[in-house]
């Protein structure tokens, strides 16, 4: 019964998605509002001095996002270090 409910919800959601993408509201690759893209392409080189527009967006227009990613990686390493130290300490206690 529960599987049936989940399956019917999935069918309804995917059906709605296909219906909307079939030429009604969402168009892939041809966005309706392109002001942001046009701005980056027109002013990116002049304002950031970088030929690579992707890098211009990632490191300049959205540098704060990159700072968050770097912090996430730092915290990941911190967690792994704590985990393995804990594991090693526990197994040394058990072996003694």
């Amino acid at each position: 019964m529960r599987n049936l409910a989940v399956a019917s919800i999935l069918v309804v959601l995917s059906g709605t998605f296909v219906y909307m993408t079939a030429g009604h509201d969402i168009t892939f690759g041809r966005p309706v509002n392109t002001q942001m893209d046009d701005y980056f392409l027109a002013r990116g080189q002049e304002q950031t001095g970088a030929n690579n527009v992707v890098t211009a967006v990632v490191f300049d227009f959205r540098g704060f996002d990159t700072l968050g990613e770097a912090t996430v990686l730092f915290v990941v390493v911190l967690g792994i270090g704590m985990l393995f130290r804990k594991l090693m300490a526990r197994e040394e206690e058990e072996s003694e």
Binding site: G49, N51, L73
Partner: peptide
């Protein structure tokens, strides 16, 4: 060229 973008690239590269 690029201002602080190459420096930030180096910083992120060293960190990663």
């Amino acid at each position: 060229t690029g201002g602080i973008i190459p420096l930030l690239n180096i910083a992120v590269g060293v960190e990663v």
